[in-house]
Design a protein around this nucleic acid. Structure first.
Length: 749
DNA sequence: ACGCCAGGTATTTTT
DNA sequence: TACCTGGCGT
């Protein structure tokens, strides 16, 4: 322990050692905050004899949580699965799983993701006689989410509503909650809301957690919303053993309800707070740090502070203007290639940041063509693919849930001769008898409302569910998913048609199955509910795999907490960054500026900023001006700042695209989706593939290749476009096989 | 019952 | 450029 402490600077050490009351650590970017947190955990365990399981540590992202767990495990060997080191949502889920019955839920309650929630809200809008075209489901969902973040219940909202608008929203909110409760379901907002409600209304339960949690640590405190703030206040009320870490300059989640006042007022909220500032930056060059300060200093609502570093001044920031977004991507690509070929940096050292997910596309296209391996973080998520959502729906039902969204999904796919008409009838019976769907099926099958054919089909479905529920009691999770895939007819459905899209789907399901088996391994005592929670709460943006040598393409929001030697901040244009929707209100602009600060401070050695003069937006070219954030950086810290932007001549380059976006999509779906444990699926996708495109197919009839499973084989047929080849090979050992070249690493021999 | 196609529309950031 | 929806044809 002593040696460990000696490696910290004075402020860091003080932060680790102080354990006598509430502690606020103001930790600037790159000041070794995670290090302090993990050492503090270790210190509590070693020197204060606290059981590791009695420490609650909450973070915002799974990435941060798993990193912390990993670091704790490196210091002391404890099984990380049981540790209360979690995101807010996961920690609350754990509490709720221990007390579901108190809230009127059953042990089978499920989590709705955003799209489930949106779908249900749309239904509620219709049921409330509100036109979903006037009140957009998404907007209503946001309003409800906001209410939950502020701990406003549906009833409270209804009684507070003054305007017709508010009343409409409130009535939808009431119906939505009622339906959610009926379906035994919670959305993201409910998880926190219900945990707080539970602790507020049940002092004896709160007391049990007071006794349990000897110390509470909170990361990214500046991003807490009111509900999370209240949760912490409740849990810390008795012992006041709470340590929060944050940086007001890095608060970027106001849109999600984060309240920067939580950190600014921490000293008022808790008596006798000790505040420690970590101001030495160990990450970035002096130049980068100064540039970050030159941007952030324009904000009015912040505690003034300036980080310092002992690092070298480093190279100036390189600013570059291009004609359009395609040139921008090509510029980034050429810089990366140049650095890589010089042997100075590997691909994984590099990150490309952008403000919106939509900007990612062009980079993917150009990187794909240019043969630079990349990973995208975010964008279309693995778990939101239809086939995966279908499998999850089956899994929810098998686990015992009567969630109607899942039942409908599984009832309709694969096609089993039951359609909208039959389903409507069943649902009507369900409402009339106020019962669940399975009982409704029983009732309707005893009546004369349906033809014999439809009845038979429904009964078959019920039998399927019963079988799967029995299986769920005996099979392991991986085996259960496999059983579902086979027994539901889903596999048959997918294998019937061999279109490229379907091959993708088959692959995705196989990845999902592999993930389930892996979960089994990681969490030996986990059950199906835990696995479902895990899927719902662990977004794919977990962990960037360090040993994958790929460039990261990532939004600025997701980049928070990460660091890279080389960073490209792209789309530095007015309207993009700062975003057009956030340019006019002062508060929102300040948040954009903080986002910029976050972006700059991710860079360790070298920072690039690019902006295009013209950019296609909504399929229309629009002329762009460089971002005001570039102007904030003084000339001595940046080169290439253009006085005038280079406007594009309207030459069109569409014809040059050698592959369509559809190809790109397919490629991506297959290649770069992570499994639930942070590793990338499909490691098989190899660089040899990149090198071949786009100049003609590498696969020729008559050539021999080594297949990882089938051994040596000879190509008898090549179909499909370059990079998308469908090969027919003859293997002496395995016979003739059709193979999508990109799935498998084929070694010429 | 169910698949397909055309046409309209939406695009910030996420647990 | 995407997705979604609603209408139509099988």
């Amino acid at each position: 322990m002593k040696e460990l402490l000696s490696k910290l600077n004075d402020a860091q050490r003080e932060a680790v050692l102080y354990c006598d009351g509430p502690l606020l650590i103001l930790a600037g970017a790159g000041s070794g905050k995670t290090r302090v947190l993990t050492h503090k955990v270790l210190y509590l365990i070693k020197e204060h004899n606290i059981d590791p399981l009695d420490i609650l540590a909450v973070t915002f992202t799974n990435k941060a949580a798993s990193e912390m767990k990993e670091r704790i495990r490196a210091l002391i060997n404890v099984p990380t699965w049981d540790l209360w080191v979690n995101t807010f949502h996961a920690a609350c889920m754990r509490i709720l799983r221990e007390h579901y019955e108190t809230l009127g839920y059953t042990k089978n309650f499920v989590i709705y993701d955003d799209s489930d929630a949106k779908r249900l809200i749309k239904q509620c809008l219709i049921d409330c006689d509100i036109d979903p075209d006037q009140f957009k489901p998404k907007a209503v969902k946001n309003a409800i989410g906001r209410a939950k973040n502020n701990l406003i219940s549906a009833e409270k909202m209804q009684s507070n509503a003054m305007t017709i608008f508010d009343k409409s929203i409130a009535s939808v909110y009431v119906l939505y909650q009622k339906t959610m409760q009926q379906n035994d379901a919670m959305d993201f907002g409910d998880i926190i809301f219900n945990a707080v409600t539970l602790l507020q209304n049940h002092p004896e339960i709160l007391k049990s957690y007071h006794e349990k949690f000897k110390y509470i640590l909170v990361d990214e405190y500046q991003d807490t919303n009111h509900a999370q703030y209240t949760l912490l206040k409740l849990l810390a009320k008795k012992r006041k053993m709470i340590c929060v870490v944050g940086d007001d300059d890095q608060s970027i989640y106001k849109f999600r309800g984060a309240n920067i006042k939580n950190i600014l007022n921490f000293e008022k909220d808790y008596k006798g707070v000790t505040t420690i500032k970590l101001e030495q930056n160990y990450r970035s060059t002096k130049c980068i740090l100064d540039a970050a300060y030159s941007v952030i200093k324009h904000n009015r609502t912040r505690k003034d502070k300036k980080l310092f570093t002992e690092n070298a001044h480093g190279e100036k920031i390189k600013c570059h203007n291009t004609r359009d977004e395609i040139e921008e991507a090509r510029y980034v690509l050429s810089e990366i290639k140049w650095m890589n070929e010089g042997g100075k940096h590997s691909f994984k050292d590099v990150a490309v940041f952008f403000r919106t997910n939509a900007q990612c596309r062009v980079f993917e296209e150009e990187f794909f063509k240019g043969g630079i391996p990349y990973i995208t973080v975010g964008g279309i998520e693995f778990y939101s693919r239809a086939e995966i959502k279908d499998m999850i729906a089956y899994l929810k039902i098998a686990s015992g849930s009567n969630d109607i969204v899942s039942i409908k999904r599984s009832l309709l796919r694969p096609r089993r001769g039951i359609g909208k008409v039959t389903l409507d009838k069943v649902e009507k019976v369900m409402v009339e008898n106020s019962t669940d769907l399975f009982s409704a099926i029983d009732i309707i099958c005893d009546s004369s409302q349906l033809g014999a054919g439809a009845k038979k089909k429904l009964k078959e479905y019920v039998t399927l569910v019963e079988t799967l529920r029995d299986d769920a009691k005996t099979l392991s999770i991986g085996n259960l998913v496999t059983r579902i895939y086979n027994a539901s007819g889903y596999k048959e459905m997918l294998e019937k048609d061999t279109s490229d899209e379907n091959i993708d789907r088959i692959n995705n399901v196989n990845e999902f199955i592999a993930g389930a088996f892996q979960f089994e391994e990681n969490a030996p005592d986990g059950d199906v509910s835990m696995y479902l929670d895990f899927i719902a709460l662990v977004s794919s943006a977990d962990k960037l795999d360090g040993d994958d040598n790929k460039v990261s393409l990532i939004t600025l929001h997701k980049a928070k907490g990460l660091e890279y030697p080389i960073v490209f901040m792209t789309g530095m244009e007015e309207g993009i960054f700062p975003h057009a929707n956030s340019m006019h209100e002062k508060e929102e602009l300040e948040e954009e500026r903080r986002l910029c600060y976050v972006g700059i401070t991710r860079a360790k050695e070298k920072l690039f900023m690019t902006h295009a003069s013209s950019r296609r937006q909504y399929n229309m070219p629009s002329f762009q001006r460089p971002s005001r954030f570039i102007d904030d950086i003084p000339d001595e810290l940046i080169t290439g700042k253009s006085k005038k932007s280079v406007f594009a001549t309207a030459s069109v380059r569409q014809g040059q695209r050698s592959f369509t976006n559809k190809d790109r999509d397919k490629f991506n779906k297959r290649s770069f989706h992570e499994d639930p444990h942070g590793q990338k699926f499909q490691k098989k996708v190899v660089n040899t593939f990149f090198k071949e495109s786009p100049s003609g197919s590498a696969y020729k009839v008559g050539k021999s290749y080594l297949h990882p499973v089938f051994g040596k084989g000879k190509v008898t047929r090549v179909e499909g476009s370059t990079g998308n080849e469908k090969l027919t090979l003859f293997f002496p050992k395995a016979g003739e096989k059709k193979i999508m070249a990109k799935y498998v690493q084929l070694v010429p021999c």
